[in-house]
């Protein structure tokens, strides 16, 4: 059974059709990188998987639970799939540790001491145990994003969704976030990552998916995807991201 199964997914915003029939199956432990031009629907696709957007039609099954099935507990699905946002969205009125433990305390009903221990463990995992008592506004962008990853991991999700996790970062801070993501991938986490970091895709992805205007135009293992794209539009896109100054 795949970890995520998407069948003929359509999504409209009003009259605008943003996802035009997506079929996608992702196995447990697989790392899938989604690339595509801005506005092609990548974020919308991720957000549908986490039910942050309502699907218009089609079906998404996460770990055997259908998102459209009325009997599915949506809050439970959201904890199955952790989401990391481009803008971090840390809770500014909470310390780093409080950000991480909020989910365990309120959703998992963990005891505070246990939650704090677990939270410290996760902060350690992302290399920030010394920042536990610090508020987000005192962290660098890279540190913020690592805390956001720890916050998602605190729900012990089966899947991690990353929406351009390094796009808002200064170039010198990108590496530390990608390192954490690579560690997760090595540990066998199922990951869906929207990113323009082609190096990361090449090194970590099992599969690269090119989304173009609301459809999956092509998908292949990274070596094949980058060396031998099948469609002209894919080649044009790759030309632009690999050589951003060429116009």
């Amino acid at each position: 059974m795949p970890m995520i199964e998407i069948k003929n997914l359509h999504k409209y915003f009003g009259d605008l059709e943003v996802l035009k029939g997506i079929d996608l199956s992702i196995e447990q432990g697989e790392v899938v990188v989604i690339v595509g031009a801005s506005g092609s629907g990548k974020s919308t696709l991720l957000r549908c998987i986490n039910k942050l957007e309502e699907l218009t039609s089609g079906e998404i099954i996460v770990d055997g639970y259908s998102l459209t099935d009325k009997s599915t507990d949506i809050n439970m699905i959201r904890t199955e799939a952790g989401m990391v946002f481009q803008q971090f969205n840390l809770f500014p009125h909470m310390t780093t540790l409080q950000n991480v433990t909020l989910g365990p305390l309120k959703v998992r009903r963990m005891k505070r001491a246990e939650a704090n221990n677990f939270g410290m463990e996760l902060l350690k995992k992302v290399g920030l145990e010394d920042k536990a008592k610090v508020y987000p506004d005192q962290l660098s962008g890279g540190q913020k994003q690592r805390v956001a990853i720890a916050r998602s991991l605190a729900l012990r999700p089966k899947v991690m969704l990353f929406d351009e996790p390094t796009s808002a970062l200064d170039p010198e801070l990108v590496g530390e976030v990608l390192e954490v993501m690579k560690t997760l991938a090595r540990e066998g986490m199922t990951m869906v990552v929207v990113t323009h970091e082609m190096g990361f895709a090449n090194e970590v992805a099992d599969r690269v998916i090119f989304v173009d205007d609301g459809v999956i135009l092509e998908q292949a293992p990274p070596k094949e995807f980058f060396s031998n794209p099948q469609f002209e539009r894919t080649r044009t896109f790759l030309g632009k991201v690999q050589n951003p100054n060429a116009g």
């Binding site: 942050l52 809050n75 959201r78 904890t79 989401m83 946002f85 916050r151 998602s152």
Partner: peptide, 24 residues
């Protein structure tokens, strides 16, 4: 994004208001 992040870690709408949106 605050509400979304709160919902994404499984908080209900009410919990998200109570612990994340309201205090801010």
């Amino acid at each position: 994004g605050q509400m979304e992040a709160a919902r994404s870690i499984g908080l209900t709408r009410f919990q998200a208001m109570r612990y994340v949106v309201w205090p801010q």
